[in-house]
Amino acid sequence: MSSTVQPNERMLRIAVGWCGALLLLVAWQLATANSGSMFFPTPLEIFDDLRERWFSDGLAGGFLTDAFFVDVTPSLRRLLIGLLVAWSVGISLGVLLGRIPAVAHTVEPILHFMRALPGPVLLPLALVLVGTGTTMRVSLIAFGAVWPVLFNTYSAVRRVPEGYLETARTAKVSRLRTLFQVILPAASTGIFAGIRVSTSLGIILLIASELVAASDGIGFGLTQAQRSFQLLPMVVHRRSVAARLPVQPRLERDRVRRSALAPAPDGSPGLTTPKGCR
């Protein structure tokens, strides 16, 4: 029987995790401080530039500078909308496929074919079909990020233990309630694994789409800095992308703790490996 993690044990784990990151930063600082090369700015310089660029405005504007609203918010918005579309389509379609074998047999080959198309490759096509606006970027993100959610949901829904479903049936629980209170919770570990992978994919596609024909956003800022040979801003833009990644595991951690740490009824370990990582 697994037991819940003690609070102080959890704090310790978090602290250890931060220590690793801190050590890396210190090492980075030490290694770059005396290099004198403009190609290797120190983390402190990067942090300084980042603060000045985006967070140095007055208190009234919540410290956010105008550049923040040109560089960061448009990107975040595109990412968020794109991911929300990917998640809702992926989860709905995944449940449909997982519950109705006939649909799965019909649609699966096409889906696998479509999934094999790498998102960035579709960029030129998307430019021609949808234009250069936000819609293009959002649809590119949605198209690329939908697959891990879809296939993870599909396989998780298919693997919902028969016992759960029979329990719901013998209790005469309605289909809708069975979907929301049995199937989705039982499949949640897989679904969240898919969401996690799709988020990283979405960020990649976001930047890729903003490298082309954009007038704002992180990718655009990166291109601008690169063209004007401003190394520091380039690094800053790149870091800002990376900084978002560690946030995602938070999303699923709580769910995983609740459902997946309990041994799966078929005896297999509860944690699902994300599928569709490329």
């Binding site: 233990p161 028969e162 016992g163 759960y164 029979e166 329990t167 013998t170 209790a171 005469k172 629980v173 209170q181 049995v182 919770p185 039982a186 949640s188 609740r258 459902s259 309990a262 041994p263 009824p265 078929d266």
Partner: peptide, 25 residues
């Protein structure tokens, strides 16, 4: 009619607390 299955691990929901499991039907 109510049914009790042999494999309780496949019939109790691990994401619901004991009380919520009993309440489920």
């Amino acid at each position: 009619l109510a049914m009790v299955f042999q494999d309780y691990r496949a019939s109790l929901f691990p994401w619901r607390r004991v009380g919520a499991n009993v309440e489920f039907p």
